[in-house]
Design a protein around this nucleic acid. Structure first.
Lengths: 118, 118
DNA sequence: CAGAATCCCCTCAGATACTG
DNA sequence: CAGTATCTGAGGGGATTCTG
């Protein structure tokens, strides 16, 4: 890889399942979101995978985590970093590109795609 | 997935190993590139994977293939479609983003990253 | 030259169960 | 609530061999 590391490495963790959807989910609503809140809004993701992705994204500097251990039960919240907020624009461009060129794919008609979040 | 199909489906094939690097490779130099030419310029990719990716990208409409069977040996060439050329801008944005934010990753110092192709 | 066919490994993600 | 631990299966990718 050597000289092709930047995009390659970026794709390495962004291409993991749920990663982009998690980023997108965190971009909605209030700043800080609880683990259970994220999980609930993304029906099919398991706690294991969500936990893994959040940790990876945190290591990559895309997600911040704050924990309030004085609460019972413990309150753990996540939000996007400025780095990730800029990435949102690119994800948006990707959506626009997909909408423009791939709109007629069999399983997602134009109506759905125009309305869908990603 | 349902309402999140566009970006998700796009990521599905773009996130496969070598896919983005192949697109990037096809964007360089002359229009049409031969199989062996692509393979030679991407040291570590195997013929199997390169063949698979090219076929997937062709199915997705990102790559065109023309074959001259009158030659011996057969001449098979590939190039990007207009759809893929627009995607290049987004890949470029992704590189710029990575350069800006992830420049200090351990295995790729600033010098390499500024010079590297992706 | 341009792949196709096999074989094999190994990672990733899902399911389930458990814990402070 | 917010995870972790363990097991499992599918499949993506590498290495090698073969072919028109």
């Amino acid at each position: 890889m050597d000289h092709q590391c930047t995009v390659y490495k970026t794709m390495d963790y962004l291409s993991r399942k749920w990663a982009i959807l998690i980023i997108h989910e965190l971009s909605k609503g209030e700043e800080w979101k609880r683990f259970s809140e994220i999980k609930a809004s993304m029906k099919d993701v398991t706690a294991k995978v969500l936990s893994e992705r959040l940790k990876e994204l945190e290591e990559e500097g895309l997600v911040e985590n704050r924990v309030d251990a004085t609460c019972i039960p413990v309150k753990s919240e996540y939000r996007l970093t400025p780095m990730a907020l800029e990435l949102l624009d690119i994800i948006h461009s990707l959506k626009m590109w997909a909408l423009k060129w791939k709109i007629d794919n069999p399983e997602c008609g134009m109506q759905n795609c125009r309305l869908c979040t990603l």
